[in-house]
Amino acid sequence: MTSNFTSRAAVALVLLLLLGTAFWSLTTGYSADAALNRTAEYYAVNTPAETGAQNVVTAIIVTYRGLDTLGEVTVLFLTAAIVALVLGQSKAPRGASGSGFLPSGELLQTGTKMLLPLILMFGAYIFVNGHLTPGGGFQGGAVLASGMLLLLLADPGKRFRKAVIHRVESLSGLFYVLIGLAGMAWAGGFLDNRILPLGQFGQILSAGAIPLIYTLIGLKVGAEFSSILESLEETEDA
């Protein structure tokens, strides 16, 4: 057994040593570019005029590469669905389910009541300001999901209403696609943000549909993360 283990480790070490030499030559031979390449320069020069967003990363994610982001959110939705499917099929043995939970303390419950609105508001702030400051739908969605996590920790027995989460998730996905189609009808193409006026550069209500789209992405991502967390947490097979 031990010899078997050491031979495994030796084979892994040899393989990683080969990979490491490739990495070594990549690192030592690397020198940073002096100027932006053509794609990046296009984004840097044309982002203010074409999308009205201050944050170039947001402009790329929501507008220039909007279709990829739609695909990414779809992958995340599929992940949440598969996790729920895989865990839903495995019935816990009788008596073993739900018995490990201790009731959470008074401190955690009161703290949750006070902090939860603030956390949700902070998440909304992050994704509404996604086109001006660092942050956006994915970060804000993660903050929303962490608020849901606090709720789960404070009250493990209680389900927060699954139906609400699923409805938020599917409605925001639907509106995301509808805004994309509206871009095809009234602007340059799928998910073009110029269906709304670009507004004044640097204001919160500017950059066309980017705040709207990022809000929808934030709600969708937050709902998906919450449903992953909930399906991993729940033990009682309802």
Partner: peptide
């Protein structure tokens, strides 16, 4: 802007990769 900012494309890529990474981890778990 073109002479002052760094390349935004890898950042957008990594933003996507982190979110998908959480999904992959959840599936593996």
């Amino acid at each position: 802007a073109a002479t002052r900012i760094i390349d935004p494309v890898p950042q957008a890529l990594v933003l996507t990769a982190i979110v998908i990474g959480l999904g992959v981890t959840a599936l593996m778990l």
